[in-house]
Write a protein that binds this DNA or RNA. Structure first.
Length: 227
DNA sequence: GCGACAG
DNA sequence: ATCTTGTCGC
């Protein structure tokens, strides 16, 4: 798929935060109409010792969730991990991976926050905006926001608040385990983000797109077999 | 000023 | 994120 433009990633943290505040105003929190046949999962693994990021984009067909395509690429790391600035570290590798897929996913689930972010521009929103594609942030832990306890029942969810603003939802995808933290990335609303997350869950805490992308980014995605 | 802090 | 096997608990 074609990437419109890349940003300059060699920026200092203060400039990065400025860019985020500017881009955040362009994020769409409304769902884009259209059928969803292909869902992509995105994850990045990093190795500071080697200075390398490995990004994986795994495209699944819906509803069977069979793997249609897998693009895994490596990219030099040029940015430290700073809470709130994750996309400046990991997104370049993600864009590289997207350049090498032939199909066009209708929806992308990204490991990390969407608007549940101090400046409302987590990596899921940033990537969605640049690619101009609907994205959902599915994080394993919280960056900002608080929530009430939620029932230990698959499908249960509660809103997450930053101050008095709803920034996402804690979603129980499986009994007896921590919830995942779902937020709008781009071109979806919160109900849509939550329902697609649940739609894509099988036997694990993480929805299949993100779970398989994580395996791929860690080079643990077998060509054959049940996993 | 102090603590919190996606991956 | 990453270093990493077996073990404890539901």
């Amino acid at each position: 798929m074609q990437i419109r433009k890349l940003h300059s990633w060699h920026v200092d943290p203060a400039e990065a935060r400025d860019i985020q505040r500017r881009l955040a105003t362009q994020v769409s929190r409304q769902p884009a109409p259209g059928a969803v046949d292909l869902i992509a999962g995105v994850d990045v693994s990093t190795n500071d010792r080697l200075g390398i990021a490995r990004a994986a984009v795994v495209v699944l067909r819906y509803p069977d969730l069979a793997v249609q395509e897998n693009s895994t690429v490596e990219e030099d790391l040029t940015f430290l991990y700073i809470p709130g600035l994750l996309s400046f570290r990991e997104a370049p590798a993600v864009f590289r991976a997207f350049e090498r897929i032939s199909s066009a996913p209708d929806l992308v689930m990204i490991d990390g926050q969407g608007i549940a972010h101090p400046r409302r521009l987590g990596i899921a929103s940033h990537v969605g905006l640049i690619l101009d594609i609907p994205t959902i942030g599915v994080a394993k832990s919280i960056l900002v926001g608080r929530h009430r306890e939620l029932p230990d029942e698959p499908g249960a969810w509660v809103q997450m608040f930053d101050r008095d603003e709803v920034v996402g939802a804690a979603v129980r995808t499986k009994r007896g385990v921590k919830p995942v933290y779902v937020s709008i990335g781009h071109k979806v609303d919160l109900p849509v983000a939550i329902s697609w997350t649940l739609n894509c869950c099988r036997s694990y805490r993480l929805p299949e797109p993100t779970r398989l992308a994580h395996l791929a980014a860690a080079s643990r995605l077998p060509i054959i077999g049940r996993y």
